[in-house]
Every structure is written in structure tokens, then in C-alpha cells.
Design a protein around this nucleic acid. Structure first.
Length: 816
RNA sequence: GCGGGCAUGGCGGAACUGGCAGACGCGCCAGACUUAGGAUCUGGUGGAUUAAUCCCAUGGAGGUUCAAAUCCUCUUGCCCGCACCA
């Protein structure tokens, strides 16, 4: 019989679905295992990146299942987002219709891959039964003081006349129309993620199962730095200019103060001075540059004098106040003290504008002269020109000066974070509406829980101006105030889709609950996610938002765990010709065509075999062929040998060899899958087994040994190629599904060899080999080695200095 | 600039704690079966050499060691992340 993958795959997919063999329920007597993949955006079609992600997860899920775990392995849809709206504007299809038909299409494709999801737990973030709870979580954060409204500068695309999400701005350019994005000040909703900055940072230590790379990225993003905040006083106006510094030890070396061009004091300070006009001009110039350009290290430092002066509270010195491009309003206080002698940025700035350079930290071995310096001195040293702190090491002085400032009440130790609060408002239609009502009498009023969900109206008009259709939808907009029942307006902004994806993994644990987002005993049974698998592109955004969410709802008593994802695997990209597969480049291979031509088992096998999961994978059409050939070989081998089974006797000459092959493979595959997730080497071990069995095809093997070999071959291959193994499993006469079988255990005795080959080296170079009993002592090894004829001639005339023996490995004879 | 990763045949990749470098697959070469082969099977395949040979081989240069792809120092190239963070 031919390997008819189409017939086999559709047959078993149907059967598995009918029998619901992947349905999961809480079983408190079994150890649980939660295997999760980052759910996809329903763009309409699966790509190879998806196939890779889900093939990896499916192997893990199946392997754990066979190893006796109660496995939760669900799938869903990150279904809100701008592409649906773009489709509506472009093609006149309603976002809802577009999204749901994409979901249907992709679900079919996923099912064709033979993935072992429990589809009864499927979620879609755009479903009212889901986003009802997204809104409920918004209210939870609101009640806990973690959701608030403030004015903020956001990304605005003038061409689309709409606000864009950060993730839609790539290098300062609108991803949609390639127009440069500008900043626009709008009143927005934020989540106070900064409240958890310290815990988000510290708890990274609780994640040994995460790649260091991802943890480092989060660490950098959170950007914690310790320092001192204190104020300069503006000489004329008396305004306090607050600055943050990590180097209070250099405070006596301040020769100017710099404000961000947008700093609120800039106007007051410069007004009435002869510099007023140039300050205005500079501010205008800065507005033109987006933040990416302005904050690039390559951009030259630029600034102007404001005309005002400030007093250094430590020494009463009067220093000029400047504004400059390199100071950002969003970080720290938006103002910095300039210490050119000991900060490279300040040094460059001071050189350019001829500002004084004052040395206050001296290296141990020499004296610094400002005129001779080519760069700032940023190493450790001893304080000079620093009043009472002279002679102190700068390390000590950081603490001492900070403490002194606190003592005399002019400053205090502060911790600054790069992390900013999470802006969640989106001026878009296709998202979860923010459940807030604005009442002229009562102000900002949250929608009561019992009124959730705030439904997205279906009957809406899209326009090409890019504004949200919710703003023009009267029946949505106009409502009554939940408090005073007077007329009120609804918030028309929807939530960032990252809000929806920050809690979906809890919902899987109790996906159809209508009373609450999830039942506590269920979420606490399944959480945390034991293995999370996805692309590294979410290293910060999704993975940090979800960690934040987890901590908030833990504090609210809804979940027990501190961290949602115990282990994280970031899979590599799928490349072709060395570059990422992408539609715009046109180097894609569609999963559909591969499944059509070779079947899902081949597609999965290739993608798992071609590279270890974390590494990038180079696509190879010939490699796919190779995997297809391998499966055909397996098919033929099992068919042939299963015919032979009935005639096989009770004793076979080659039983021992075949058993060794079988059990060695069980050991290798088990270790590679469970300990290292090295599916490529696990598959190669199975290939070796097939090669081994092929070589023994016509030899004399007993019935039991042959049966054992074939059964185990299929059990080991089952997580990788679920359809063909199921088919052949039944060919061998089994009645139950191979996927419900326990994972095989190896027999250590079967692996042991009586004699092994030992390498004999002279001065570390291989000169001969010998067969010797595994149990041979080191003495025996040495003696046997020295008796080898070939060795004797090579050793002639040489003096043996010493002999090194490594049991079961080698003998190394060191000669002179 | 800072941080991280990678570098092994013609290609994808093995070699887990230092112990036979190149498992497995692709490709290539030869043969078998075939009307045919881009099917299948068998054998071969890092380089040099006719060959035995043990000569050269894990980006490069040193070092440690009986022994290094693996450990240390320096260096080159590529990839990723962060980037005037005060």
C-alpha cells in the first residue's frame, strides 16, 4: 500500500474530533501541565512561523500527555486590531465579518495540521463574552487606582488623521501610509504599570526558565536607576528647577543647567530676555524632529541659552540655563545639571558652546586640566574643588552628598524608571470599548459591572478621515449617567489590544464561565503556564503587560501565582535564502501548499528537524522532500515488518541487536525531548532507528522483539507525526489511539554492550582502536592497549612517560 | 557606544560534564532494478595524497591540558536588543 497522507490525515483528524481525545478537564488527582502558545492575530492565513510555533507546542503537549500529565493545551484568537478596520475602509467589509471569517479559515488550517488542542476552550477577544471581562478588568484596575486619565503626547499620523499605537510606528514612520508621525497632546487613559516597576524588575529572578535575553530586555526597558533629586533656583523668577542625577558626587562641577525644550518653565525663564526669540525658534525646530531622531546618539547635540541663570544650592554658584535636544521631558524631571568634566554628553555640549569645564573628580595618578581634556573623565577618583567633600572617594561621595542634601533639606534620594505608564486608549472602532461614561454633573463615571459588556455597535459608518466611527455613532455615544441618570456621553476610545491579550491565558482555564472571568479553583489548578512558546518580538510588550496584569489580579486575590509563565521558549524565525519569510519580500512558502503536496506530518517533521527551536530555521524544499521520504520509509517498513510478524518465531539471532537499537532510541528521544527540547536530534535518533531496523529487515528476529521495536518506533514518533503513527499503530492491530498511550520506558540492561571499542592515543592522537569488555579495569585497559601489535611498532625507541586511561573511552600513552 | 548571541564539510545541523570532529538529513558520486527515472534500493562522500599514510582541518592568533569545536586571553565577521536615561 502507498502512503496516502491525504486519506490518512483527514481520516484521523475526523476520528480524533469525534472521540474528543484531546478534551481536557480538571483532574485534581493528576499532575497538571499547561502548555501555551502565543495566540495568533486572525489575519486570514497561517504562515510558517505559526506552523513552527504550534508544532513545537504540540510536541510538548503530546509528550507530557503520554507522560501522565493532565495537559491543558488551548488555542484562541487575538481578534481585535487595526487590520480589520483597514479592511473595512478599503473593501467595505465589516470588521466583525472580516475577523470571524478569517478565524474560520485559520481554524480549519490549524485543524489540518493535526494539533491536539482542546477546541472547547477556544476564545476570541472580540467576542462580547470575552471582552465583557476585559472591561471588567478595566474596572478592577480603575477601582484599585491603577487606571487613570491624563493628557499626554501621542503618536499622530497627519495623513491618516488618526492616532497610532506605538507598535504601529516603526522608526518614527506610520506603518500604514509611510508618513512621518508627529506628537499630539490628547487626554488619554493609562494603566499605572509603574506602580509595579520594582516588582516587575525583581521578580525576573523568579524566572530561571526564561531566556536571559528576554529578561535583560525587560530589565533595560524598566530601566531602574538610583540617584538624587534636588532643585536649582532660578535667579530672577525664583522658580525651582528640579533635576535628577545619578552622580551627586559631581554636583560641585556643575557649570550649567539644561532643560528639555518642552519643559514648562522654558517660557517663563526666557520671556523678556534678549534670547526669547531664539528660544522660540529652537523649540519650533525641535517639534519637527520626532523622538527617534532626537534621541539618537548620532544626532549632534544642539541647544540655546535661555537668558536666565540658576543658583546651585550646594555652593551658591550662578550657572546659565540652557535648553537642548539631548534632554527629554519624559525622563526624570526633564532637566539635568551639566557637568562637562565628568559626563561625556555634557562635555561635548560644553565644548561646542564654550561653557566652562570644572574638574571635581581627580584620578589617583594625575591632575586633570580642563583645557587638555579630550573627553570627560568618567572613572572613579577623589573629590577636588568640592568644599567639605574634598579628598573623599567619589563612590563614598555619591552617598555622602546625597545624604547631606537630605539632611539640610534640599534634596532626596530617588529611584527613577525608564518605564512609563501604559497608554491604553486607542481612537479606533475595532477594540474593547473603555467602560466609562462622562456626565456633566458627576464627571467620570465607571459603567457598573452589571451593565457590562458595553457592546460595540455593529451598525456603524466608516469614513476615510481615519476618525473612529464610534464618535459619530449617536446611539452608542449618548447614554444615561449610571449615577444621576441624567444625560451622559460614552467614552469612544477602545482599549489597546495588548489589554485583551494580557489575560487570555486565565480565560482558557474556564473559558465558558458567564458569572466571572474564571473560577478561582480552576485558575489556581492550571496556573502558572508551565511552558509558554512564542516569538521573541513580544519580549517586552505582551510579556511585560501580562506579568503586570498577573500581579494586579494577584493583589486583588484572583490568582495565587506571582508570575504567569514559568518557562518561556522563544522560537527562531523561519528564513528563506537567509532572510525572514515575508509577504513584502515575496519569499514565502505557504503551509497550505506544503500540506497539499506532502501532508501535515511532513510539514511538522521538517520544521522540527531542520533546526533546534530557539534558532532561526532555513527553509529548504529539498529538506522537506527528505522528511517526506523518511515518512514513506517508515510506512513501508512498518507494513513489511508487520506482515512478517505473524511468521516470526520465539527466538531471533539478532534479538539483542534490535533490542539495543530500540531501547537506545527510547533513551535518546526521551532525553532530547524532555530535558532539552532538542527535537531535531530526537528525530535524527528515530531516523537512525529506522535505518537500523531496515538493515535488520531480512534477518532473524523473534516476534516479541520485532513487535516491541515497531510499537516503540511509533510511540516515539507519535508526537512529531501524529497521523501516520496513528494509522500504522492500528495497522499493527492496536485498537486505542497511539496518542493515549503511555510514553515508553527504556530497559537499561538492553542498552549495555559486552564489548566496546576503545580508542588508543599516543600523545593525544588516535593511533589504534581495540575492543575490550565494558567491565575492564583501568589496569586491564592499559595492559591490553600496550599489547596491540600496531602500537608496539609505533612505540619502538620511545620512552613511555605516562599512560592515561578513561574507562569506556580511551587510553592515551604519553611518550618522549 | 553598551548588552547579548552566533561562527563546525558544498548546505541545514550533531558532538550534553574537555576524550574517535562532522551523527541525522540535504546535495553530490558510483552501482543495482527499470522502456524511462527527478521513484526505490545498495555503497561512497571534510581536505591533501595514486595509495598506505596518519599530514592538514571547527572564523583568526596565542595559552592551559596527556587531550580543546568545548576552558582562558586577544582578535575578526555576522545577527539581535538597547541606545544622548541625566
Amino acid at each position: 500500500m502507498k502512503y496516502d497522507f491525504k486519506l490518512i490525515e483527514s481520516k484521523w483528524q475526523k476520528k480524533w474530533e469525534e472521540d474528543k481525545i484531546y478534551k481536557t478537564s480538571e483532574d485534581y488527582n493528576k499532575p497538571k501541565y499547561y502548555c501555551l502558545e502565543m495566540f495568533p492575530y486572525p489575519s486570514g492565513n497561517l504562515h510558517m512561523g505559526h506552523v513552527r510555533n504550534y508544532s513545537i507546542g504540540d510536541v510538548v503537549a503530546r509528550f507530557k500527555r503520554m507522560n501522565g500529565f493532565n495537559v491543558l493545551y488551548p488555542m484562541g484568537w487575538d481578534a481585535f486590531g487595526l487590520p480589520a478596520e483597514n479592511a473595512a475602509i478599503k473593501h467595505g467589509i465589516h470588521p466583525s465579518k472580516w475577523t470571524w471569517s478569517n478565524i474560520d479559515n485559520m481554524r480549519t488550517q490549524l485543524k489540518q495540521l493535526g494539533l491536539s488542542y482542546d477546541w472547547d476552550r477556544e476564545v476570541a477577544t472580540c467576542h462580547p463574552n470575552y471582552y465583557k471581562w476585559t472591561q471588567w478588568f478595566f474596572l478592577l484596575l480603575y477601582k484599585r487606582g491603577l487606571a487613570y486619565r491624563k493628557k499626554a503626547f501621542v503618536n499622530w499620523c497627519p495623513s491618516c488623521s488618526t492616532v497610532l499605537a506605538n507598535e504601529q510606528v516603526v522608526d518614527g514612520i506610520c506603518d500604514r501610509c509611510k508618513t512621518e508621525v508627529v506628537k499630539k497632546e490628547l487626554e488619554q487613559w493609562f494603566f499605572k504599570i509603574t506602580d509595579y516597576a520594582d516588582e516587575l524588575l525583581n521578580d525576573l529572578e523568579k524566572l530561571p526558565g526564561w531566556p536571559d535575553k528576554v529578561k535583560t530586555m525587560q530589565q533595560n526597558w524598566i530601566g531602574r536607576s538610583e540617584g538624587v533629586e534636588f532643585s536649582f533656583t532660578a535667579e530672577k523668577t525664583g522658580d525651582k528647577i528640579s533635576v535628577f542625577t545619578t552622580r551627586p558626587d559631581t554636583v560641585y562641577g556643575v557649570s550649567y543647567v539644561v532643560l528639555a525644550p518642552e519643559h514648562p518653565l522654558v517660557e517663563t525663564l526666557s520671556s523678556g530676555t534678549e534670547y526669547e526669540a531664539s528660544v522660540k525658534e529652537f523649540k519650533k525646530k525641535m517639534e519637527k524632529y520626532n523622538e527617534i531622531v532626537r534621541t539618537s546618539t548620532e544626532t549632534e547635540k544642539e541647544g540655546v541659552f535661555t537668558g536666565a541663570y540658576a543658583i546651585n544650592p550646594m555652593n551658591g554658584e550662578k550657572v546659565p540655563i540652557w535648553i537642548a535636544n539631548y534632554v527629554l521631558l519624559g525622563y526624570g524631571t526633564g532637566a539635568v545639571m551639566g557637568v562637562p568634566a565628568h559626563d561625556q554628553r555634557d562635555f561635548e555640549f560644553a565644548k561646542k558652546y564654550n561653557l566652562p569645564i570644572k574638574v571635581v573628580i581627580s584620578p589617583q595618578d594625575k591632575t586633570l586640566h580642563p583645557d587638555e581634556m579630550n573627553e570627560a573623565f568618567v572613572d572613579d577618583g577623589i573629590l577636588v574643588n568640592s568644599d567639605r567633600f574634598n579628598g573623599m572617594s567619589n563612590i563614598e561621595a555619591i552617598k555622602a552628598i546625597g545624604q547631606y542634601m537630605e539632611d539640610i533639606g534640599i534634596g532626596k534620594f530617588e529611584v527613577n524608571f525608564k518605564l512609563r505608564d501604559w497608554l491604553i486608549s486607542r481612537q479606533r472602532y475595532w477594540g474593547a470599548p473603555i467602560p466609562i461614561v462622562y456626565c456633566d454633573k458627576c464627571g467620570v463615571v465607571p459603567v457598573p459591572e452589571e451593565d457590562l459588556p458595553v457592546l460595540l455597535p455593529e451598525d456603524i459608518q466608516f469614513n476615510t478621515r481615519g476618525t473612529s466611527p464610534l464618535q459619530e455613532c449617536d446611539e452608542f455615544l449618548n447614554t444615561t449617567c449610571p449615577k444621576c441618570h441624567g444625560p451622559a456621553r460614552r467614552e469612544t476610545d477602545t482599549m489597546d489590544t495588548f489589554v485583551c491579550s494580557s489575560w487570555y491565558f486565565y480565560r482558557y482555564t474556564d473559558a465558558r464561565n458567564e458569572e466571572e472571568p474564571f473560577a478561582r479553583e480552576k485558575v489556581n489548578y492550571w496556573m502558572p503556564v508551565d511552558q509558554y512558546i512564542g516569538g521573541v518580538e513580544h519580549a517586552i510588550l505582551h510579556l511585560m503587560y501580562s506579568r503586570f496584569f498577573n500581579k494586579v489580579i494577584r493583589d486583588a486575590g484572583l490568582v495565587a501565582v506571582d508570575e504567569p509563565f514559568e518557562n518561556l521558549l522563544t522560537q527562531g524565525m523561519v528564513l528563506r535564502d537567509g532572510i525572514k519569510m515575508s509577504k513584502s519580500i515575496g519569499n514565502t512558502v505557504s503551509p497550505e501548499e506544503i500540506i497539499e503536496k506532502y501532508g501535515a506530518d511532513t510539514a511538522r517533521l521538517f520544521i522540527l528537524f531542520a533546526a533546534p527551536p530557539e534558532r532561526d530555521l532555513e527553509w529548504s524544499d529539498q529538506g522537506v522532500e527528505g522528511c517526506f521520504r523518511f515518512l514513506q520509509r517508515v510506512f513501508r517498513l512498518v507494513e513489511e515488518l508487520s506482515n512478517k510478524l505473524s511468521n516470526a518465531g520465539n527466538f531471533g539471532e539478532y534479538d539483542k541487536d534490535v533490542r539495543r537499537i530500540t531501547h537506545k532510541t527510547i533513551k535518546k528521544v526521551t532525553e532530547d525531548v524532555s530535558e532539552r527540547f532538542n527535537f531535531n536530534t530526537a528525530i535524527s535518533a528515530i531516523m537512525e532507528m529506522v535505518n537500523g531496523l531496515n538493515a535488520h529487515k531480512d534477518t532473524n528476529i523473534s516476534k516479541t522483539v520485532l513487535k516491541e521495536a515497531l510499537d516503540n518506533l511509533l510511540l516515539l514518533l507519535a508526537p512529531f507525526a501524529p497521523h501516520i503513527t496513528e494509522e500504522l499503530w492500528h495497522t499493527l492491530g492496536h485498537k486505542e489511539s497511539v496518542h493515549l498511550m503511555p510514553w515508553p520506558k527504556y530497559d537499561a540492561n538492553a542498552i549495555v554492550e559486552d564489548e566496546i571499542e576503545i580508542v588508543i592515543q599516543i600523545n593525544g592522537k588516535v593511533r589504534d582502536k581495540m575492543k575490550i569488555s565494558v567491565e575492564a579495569s583501568e589496569d586491564e585497559m592499559r595492559e591490553t592497549a600496550l599489547k596491540q601489535e600496531k602500537l608496539l611498532s609505533l612505540l619502538e625507541g620511545k620512552k613511555i612517560v605516562k599512560v592515561i586511561t578513561v574507562p569506556k573511552k580511551l587510553v592515551n600513552i604519553v611518550v618522549k
